[in-house]
Design a protein around this nucleic acid. Structure first.
Ligand code: FES
Ligand code: FES
Lengths: 148, 148
DNA sequence: CTAAACAGTACCAATTCAGTCCTATTTATA
DNA sequence: TATAAATAGGACTGAATTGGTACTGTTTAG
């Protein structure tokens, strides 16, 4: 159904929670408890987000995680990419298309453009936005195109 | 990676092929052969597209499938929905969120808006567009928002 | 020195997805 | 009217992905 993975959904919840108190630091256990997500899963996600440089961590007693950047400087697209890799709607949209028509395949190039539009839509929304009651607007000026 | 299913990719290939000769009628075997997609798979997809009323079919010898509407009147969004159901990025974006915060969950409402932006992006592109060498533009005026 | 907390990896279970097969039913035409 | 070309519909399997778990190691405040 063209939906993001459940884990990605969790990840945004985590990030949005962190975005509400950008100064504070949270342990995995705290977040798991507060959001009612199983601890091992939370731990796994935080690790991935850390590797994507969206978080900073402090080890040891009293350690924890916090955002690596200001809430308005982290986009939903980054969170999604961190968990499920780059946004590319079709296989061939990201490189070698194994499609049949190949040579004269118009579909492929067009999927790439559509993918970009989607990516732009996700990039347009920051964690700060997500933490707010309602997005003001997601105005997506999607694609600038090489003229006919 | 936020990608559409392989079957959906196939489905668009099929639809685009049909869109190139909207008058003609194609048998499943013809399409399978031309696009190098396994026949049983093609047959399955055509059935689903038929049930979504995107195609019309004629049975018997010399029968086949053709588009139910003009190529410019069928959007990529419709094809995607026909194969993988309605576009809704998150579980809760389409109804009952089983999310923890529930009550005051701002994330949920915002995901809905993002989903809509994506949907609009897919609706903005028709089969006729996909059949052309390169989309002119996918300008997505995504969301009109209830003002602050 | 101990306990809290992150780091990394490997593993299992369950669901989903792609693909196949089989058995009707319809219809042009030889 | 018999035959073959086609769609209609469903059931079934195998593979791949995903969600979730477990274990072992490292860091660090008190
Ligand atoms: S190369 Fe993938 S659709 Fe043609
Ligand atoms: S209800 Fe699903 S994210 Fe809160």
């Amino acid at each position: 159904m063209l939906r993001i993975a459940k884990l990605t959904d969790y990840a945004t919840l985590l990030m949005v929670r962190l975005a509400r108190d950008p100064a504070r630091s949270f342990s995995a256990a705290q977040l798991a408890d507060e959001l009612r997500i199983p601890l091992p899963t939370v731990a796994k996600l935080l690790k991935r987000l850390l590797q994507a440089h969206l978080l900073t961590s402090v080890r040891g007693v009293g350690g924890g995680y916090s955002l690596a950047h200001a809430p308005h400087a982290i986009s939903v697209a980054e969170v999604v990419s961190a968990i499920e890799g780059p946004v590319a709607l079709t296989e061939c949209a990201r490189g070698a298309g194994n499609c049949s028509l190949e040579g004269g395949c118009t579909t492929r190039a067009n999927w790439k453009l559509i993918s970009r539009a989607v990516r732009v839509a996700l990039e347009a929304v920051s964690l700060a936005d997500m933490a707010m009651p309602q997005l003001r607007s997601v105005h997506v000026q999607a694609l600038q195109e090489k003229k006919p």
